[in-house]
């Protein structure tokens, strides 16, 4: 494949990549702990995945196959441009098939197709600190992490139940990693939270603007916070995907006309397409 001239492999210089890898190693060694790193200026704005791109750039090698999704879709602008970025700066192969990829960079979803050992999933993180909403001081949140002083996190869930009768937080739902560190899973729907638990793949998280990297190593326990009398639950839909008929995937609502027409389809485009292909082949 054609690579751009004048850039180092995967855009970042080797010293920066080393620095990122050191941060990743520390993050893997302390599951769920936010490791500060020297986030670089990237050729795209904050909020577009600068953290995820730097983590991917730090770990990617010439033999890797990259998949990038945004809200589950491989064909959105953000996903396409990040895929192209690595294709041009690293000359690596890209794919939209989950099981084929060695690295999956994602914004807001975990693929429906189960990940396997040896794969790495890289999450783009806007706000890494789960305690920030109730404690604005960084010095204090660090201390709270150090002391595993997380009781007040339940105040948020309490407020949900008091106000709506149930825990209404539906995405970026707080989890406890390895029974030690409280972690924000990035704005994935809570539907995806159970997939993080004891996942065989390595899960890495990068926050560019906030300059933090954290990780969940393979097979690590990831527990969603809840109350004994209001246990953690995931979303359910009354209908199946209008395209592939799946009843097990996370569905997006799509408005089809301006007369109130709508349909529910899988948010994971690759998963949906595979199922439709298989159905067609069977017919």
């Amino acid at each position: 494949m054609n690579t751009s001239q004048g850039y180092n492999f995967a855009y970042l210089d080797e010293q920066t990549k080393r620095m990122i890898r050191r941060a990743i190693l520390k993050a893997v060694a302390i599951p769920g702990y936010q490791v500060p790193f020297g986030s670089r200026e990237m050729p795209l704005p904050y909020g577009w995945g600068t953290g995820g791109i730097q983590v991917t750039a730090g770990i990617i090698g010439p033999d890797d196959i990259l998949k990038v999704i945004d809200q589950g879709a491989d064909d959105t602008t953000n996903a396409v441009s990040i895929r192209r970025f690595f294709a041009r700066t690293a000359g690596i192969r890209t794919t939209s098939r989950t099981e084929e990829a060695t690295i999956i960079q994602t914004r807001h979803r975990i693929p429906e197709t189960p990940l396997s050992a040896g794969q790495t999933i890289v999450y783009q993180v806007p706000t890494p600190e789960p305690l920030r909403w109730l404690e604005p001081r960084e010095t204090e949140t660090r201390k709270m992490h150090a002391l595993a002083d997380y009781g007040i996190m339940h105040v948020k869930l309490y407020e949900d139940i008091a106000r709506f009768g149930r825990i209404s937080t539906t995405y970026d739902y707080p989890v406890l990693v390895d029974d030690r560190y409280l972690m924000r899973p990035s704005p994935i729907p809570k539907f995806d939270n159970p997939k993080m638990h004891r996942n065989p793949a390595l899960q890495l998280f990068g926050a560019g603007r906030e300059k933090r990297i954290y990780a969940v190593p393979p097979w690590t326990s990831v527990r969603s916070l809840d109350f004994e009398d209001h246990p953690f639950e995931v979303q359910k839909w009354s209908q199946a995907c209008a395209l592939c008929g799946s009843t097990e995937s996370f569905l997006d609502e799509v408005v089809t006309d301006d007369k109130g027409g709508r349909m529910f389809v899988c948010s994971d485009t690759d998963y949906c397409q595979r199922r439709r292909d298989a159905k067609e082949a069977a017919e």
């Binding site: 109730l134 002083d149 009781g151 007040i152 339940h154 105040v155 309490y158 407020e159 139940i161 008091a162 106000r163 809840d226 109350f227 004994e228 009398d229 209001h230």
Partner: peptide, 27 residues
């Protein structure tokens, strides 16, 4: 006090901080 959360949560916070995990009893 935490001015941004309800009176009940303000009172219940200490209970949650020391490990209470049953919404009904906290309330």
């Amino acid at each position: 006090l935490r001015m941004g959360v309800s009176a009940g949560a303000n009172v219940g916070e200490r209970l949650m901080a020391v490990g209470a995990r049953h919404y009904g009893r906290i309330r």
